[in-house]
Amino acid sequence: MSGATIDVEALAAASRRRKARERFLTHLALILGVAVFALPIWITLVGSTHDTDTIGRGEVPLLPGGEALRNYTRAWSEGGGGRNTFAVPAGTMLLNSFIMAMLIAVGKIAISLLSAFAVVFFAFPFRMVFFWMIFITLMLPVEVRIIPTFQVMTDLSLIDTMTGLTLPLIASATATLLFRQFFLTIPDEYVEAAKVDGAGPLRFFKDVVLPLSATNIAALFVILFIYGWNQYLWPLLMVSNRDLETIIVGLTKMIGIGDTQNEWNLIMTTAVFALLPPVAVVVLMQRWFIKGLTETEK
């Protein structure tokens, strides 16, 4: 009998060892994953604290240097980077990116709320035609209609304007579909009650629909702000006046064709500037962000 007890203990110990080993491997895999994500950021952060020569010589520093303050103030107020491009201060580009991202996010949410409200709470001729017209825009990303859209912008003299940069991007099928889906879950009794109280549709929209949608609006805002901030092809086409340069496009213009003689420390500093706002939004609003992401894609 004693042999059996020993066996049980040995088995338990073996199982504990196996579990510990599994936990260790899990942590190892995740740490490696995190490291692969963090490596480029670390190199960039470190690079932004060294002088041009250190990086230009190819020393690839792995620990921060002492030039951070100088680099960041210079990039913010003067810009720099490539030898052949006209420098734009990162401060200007950040402001432009921020205005663009805010206008796109707020604009998309506003016009989608209105159109979803019309489609759900009214009956009118061609209702479904409008709905399908909005829906079809999902299939027309800017990339597949570059040249004609550019011609439209020229005809309307919207090239090199903030309006031109943002207005064509604020139509939103996904946001309209999301709000429609949500409005359909608002109980009919609410509408009836509003009618009994003599509240018109606009009053109902302001006092009932908007407050109920607050969570969805917040979640969507995170996604759309990042979408706006990360625009690339459109600003590249629309903007030639460098006062209107946005940070992501401005950054790649600083790099040019990747010349070794570039002021890489300033380019890395600018990359950090470009990175911070959207990453901060995701990390600080992680819960909203995941909700927004998983629900818009349903």
Partner: peptide, 12 residues
Amino acid sequence: LLVWPYAVAPAL
């Protein structure tokens, strides 16, 4: 730590 790169633009 695994979620944040979503915020990074493809060009960036």
